[in-house]
Design a protein around this nucleic acid. Structure first.
Ligand SMILES: [Mn+2]
Ligand SMILES: [Mn+2]
Ligand SMILES: [Mn+2]
Ligand SMILES: [Mn+2]
Lengths: 153, 153
DNA sequence: AGATCAATATAGCATATGCTATATTTATTT
DNA sequence: AAATAAATATAGCATATGCTATATTGATCT
């Protein structure tokens, strides 16, 4: 497979570097692995704030999945040290879980507000942010923050 | 579970509507299901442009996965009518596959260029775009396009 | 042509995330 | 307190996406 690139030493065509491309795919795959944990702890934190407790049925309703799906995921989050549960009582966040929830919520808000700031309708911003948030690096997040902040003047 | 929301008829707090939240989660889950197919056809199209053919080993190397993983996914893409293969020759895109590749590439470029436009370093933009692209609605894409375009003056 | 190398195919394993059906346990109502 | 309802637990199934090991097929070199 011969490459068909113009050689321009002055302007290294980074947009087509295969190694970088591979890194990008790997980063996206990696992000997919932490997505669910982030959404869960953020949601559990929300539910506790809203109503003092986070029950499986409520988590399932919000996520739009079945209750046994939530039950299994919670078991895993307990193993990962993010969640505690008292059987047949609601679930709670560990310190580590609260930290992750906090970070996730902040990132989520920054992404959502940024989308609104560039002119995306609020409902759409909310929908898109739910997926985008997991693929935004610190650098991109910083750029989002800068823009939204500047916009506010 | 009682809700703890301030009632403000003038300003419906849409940012906290549970039904919308659920839709957002569903949209993100849905997006995850089409991600791989999009990346595959886009990549196959790239490889064919670069070198006239797309072989499993090259696809695997670019994606950073093992060859049997690619073999199985290609079988699935054939079932979905996006890809054709001649055994032990490379793989090719069907008309439908080419369409999806085209759309995916355009979206990918818009996202990446937009990130650069708001000040994200190009390498980071490339990495983040690989994941973000799959979660961007038409409306958000339009906003990205507008901004990048305006920036170019 | 035969040997060797490269690419692809296939089998089998693992984990993740969805589902339905149903048993068990707790909460609520009568 | 017993009956009923609600929530949770568990079993079993399905699909998706990774992996390694290995067989098969095709391409290349001597
Ligand atoms: Mn979120
Ligand atoms: Mn999310
Ligand atoms: Mn892409
Ligand atoms: Mn991608």
């Amino acid at each position: 497979m011969k490459k068909n690139v113009a050689i321009r030493p002055q302007e290294p065509d980074l947009s087509n570097d295969p190694a970088l491309r591979t890194e990008a795919f790997q980063q996206a795959r990696e992000a997919r692995r932490s997505e669910l944990a982030e959404d869960y702890v953020e949601l559990i934190d929300d539910l506790i704030r809203e109503g003092g407790e986070a029950r499986q049925v409520d988590i399932a309703a919000r996520l739009g999945v079945a209750q046994p799906t939530v039950a299994r995921m919670l078991r895993k989050l307990v193993e990962e040290g993010l969640v505690q549960r008292k059987a047949y009582r609601g679930v709670f966040l560990t310190d580590s879980g609260r930290e992750l929830a906090q970070a996730s919520r902040e990132r989520h808000e920054i992404v959502e507000q940024f989308l609104v700031a560039i002119g995306v309708p609020p409902e759409t911003a909310q929908r898109d942010a739910e997926g985008i948030e997991h693929h935004v690096s610190e650098e991109t997040l910083a750029a989002f923050r800068r823009f939204t902040e500047a916009q506010r003047r």
